[in-house]
């Protein structure tokens, strides 16, 4: 019997470090149940690991020095050529696929406009946002979604700087991004800001804000400079991760979470409201609260989600929708469903 083999000193450490296979792990656990001294050692070793993180994890939140940042960017460029997993949108076939997806989505998909319900010519709206910008925006949303997957999956790297001092956090991230960015107040929809991190993106830097609700469900808001015109909300579903993204002022926003489309839309709306109510808003209608996004037509349902029925309760019925919508400025494809990328 394999499990009957005596537990070795090495296996004890491998157990502590999570480097032991299932069979032997059980054997160690059985042994520990009968050996209080060994159990004490295991607990002490684990406590050491916890202490090490307690002492040194703050380094993860320290901003890189400029030379190191430059070197990081350089290395990123050098290695990207070398890597068999290039940035996804650099691959020619992805560009092709994205272009095809745009056409398909434009032909069949609905979208969320920000305005009051109004018949909209999809083709016309698509023309309003140049294809290049659409592509950049999609690439941005994809990058933001990947960052979300990564940083919500490993709690060691969740945030670079906590939100204890929000001014400090916002100033730091604004500096990194080169624009005035801030973490919107989402308390009204039940999410509190945990902190943020700066992230290298295709060109320059973006800011990722992380929020959690009472159930410790995490969502992230990714903000990055974006030239071009403003756009309305677009939606993407990648596996179980949902993303809304849009452009407001000179910034692109992507809100990501493992939430239903409706739930995430509600949070997106809260983000949007808070962004618009900040000082120095872009030219906007006089309403403090912008009209709720409304479905213009049934969207092509993302895989795994039931199509929305016309008679279904609208999540935003109760919001004030009177007032002129912001000028209609382009529409993004809504249901660019991808198969979940590596999760």
């Amino acid at each position: 019997m394999m499990n009957a083999r005596r537990v070795t000193e090495d296996e004890l450490h491998a157990y502590v470090d999570g480097q032991l296979d299932g069979d032997r792990r059980l054997a160690v656990e059985r042994w520990l149940a009968d050996d209080p001294d060994a159990l004490r050692r295991v607990e002490d070793y684990r406590a050491q690991t916890v202490l090490l993180h307690e002492v040194f994890d703050s380094v993860l939140r320290e901003p890189l020095s400029d030379p190191s940042q430059d070197l990081t960017d350089k290395l990123k460029g050098r290695l990207a050529f070398n890597d068999n997993r290039p940035v996804w949108h650099a691959r020619p076939w992805v560009r092709m696929a994205a272009a095809v997806a745009l056409v398909v989505a434009g032909a069949t998909g609905g979208y969320f406009g920000r305005g009051a319900p109004a018949p909209v010519n999809v083709a016309q709206q698509q023309q309003a946002v140049p294809p290049q910008q659409q592509q950049n925006l999609k690439a941005f949303a994809e990058e933001a979604t990947q960052a979300h997957r990564f940083y919500t999956s490993d709690e060691r790297f969740q945030v670079e700087m906590g939100a204890d001092n929000q001014n400090e956090l916002n100033n730091w991230l604004s500096q990194r991004v080169g624009r005035d960015v801030f973490g919107p107040d989402l308390s009204r929809v039940g999410y509190r800001l945990i902190g943020g991190r700066s992230m290298p993106i295709n060109r320059g830097a973006g800011a990722q804000y992380m929020y959690a609700n009472d159930q410790n469900k995490r969502i992230t808001l990714f903000v990055a400079p974006q030239s071009g015109q403003e756009t309305s909300f677009s939606f993407a579903q990648n596996g179980d991760v949902a993303t809304f993204y849009w452009v407001e002022g000179s910034l692109a926003y992507a809100l990501i979470g493992r939430l239903s489309k409706e739930e995430l839309l509600q949070v997106s709306q809260a983000v949007y409201n808070d962004v618009r109510s900040r000082p120095n808003p872009p030219p906007a209608p006089p309403q403090v609260q912008p009209p709720a996004p409304q479905q213009q037509q049934p969207p092509a349902p993302p895989q795994g989600q039931p199509p929305q029925q016309p008679g279904q309760p609208e999540p935003h019925r109760d919001q004030r929708t009177q007032g002129q919508p912001p000028e209609q400025n382009g529409v993004q494809p809504v249901s660019d469903t991808h198969p979940g990328k590596g999760s």
């Binding site: 380094v59 790297f157 590596g342």
Partner: peptide, 22 residues
């Protein structure tokens, strides 16, 4: 988990810095 090379690299460099400090 991630096909974004830049993110992966950034995470590893954060790890390098922590190790160097420790």
């Amino acid at each position: 988990r991630l096909s974004n090379f830049g993110v992966e690299l950034e995470v590893h460099i954060a790890s390098l810095r922590r190790y160097a400090r420790a």
